[in-house]
């Protein structure tokens, strides 16, 4: 039992990431509303960003990736030690991913607005019905 608790506490970030990813995946498959699907896609994205950010964390008193007393003291002779600072690389990758995600959200919402303008509804099954009615039975 205590082994299981150690396993859970030591890796709780992966549990959270998998739970959020499952919520997003379920919303993308099961929900029929296009806006709900877009929300599901964004939850999926943030789950993956959470995974990357949590791999960057370092225990043992590591600080945020901004070098302390960087300016005014010249370049420090011993330099920064890698163990003192959190891994900055996943932060960089995910920072740009967030901004791209809002741009893709804009395009997705644009397409949803366009679909609503054309068919008068955001529900997937109703859109299929309208298309069937327009083409005379052929889906």
């Amino acid at each position: 039992m205590s082994e299981f608790i150690d396993f859970f506490v030591g890796k709780y970030n992966y549990w959270a990431f998998i739970l959020l990813m499952m919520i997003g995946l379920y919303a993308m498959i099961a929900k029929k509303n296009l806006a709900k699907k877009i929300i599901g896609m964004n939850i999926f994205q943030t789950a993956i960003i959470l995974f990357y950010i949590s791999t960057a964390a370092k225990g043992g008193g590591a600080s945020i990736p901004i070098i302390a007393h960087g300016h005014g003291h010249g370049l420090s002779e011993h330099g920064a030690r890698a163990a003192d600072y959190i891994n900055p690389l996943p932060h960089v990758l995910m920072l740009t991913a967030i901004v791209v995600s809002v741009a893709t959200l804009g395009v997705a919402l644009t397409l949803a607005v366009k679909v609503y303008h054309q068919y008068g509804t955001l529900e997937e099954d109703e859109i299929a019905d309208r298309i069937r009615a327009q083409t005379g039975g052929e889906p």
Partner: peptide, 14 residues
């Protein structure tokens, strides 16, 4: 982490 400050003079490594 070790070289960013010396090479680019930017304390924010990100």
């Amino acid at each position: 982490i070790e070289e960013a400050m010396a090479e680019t003079s930017a304390p924010n490594i990100v």
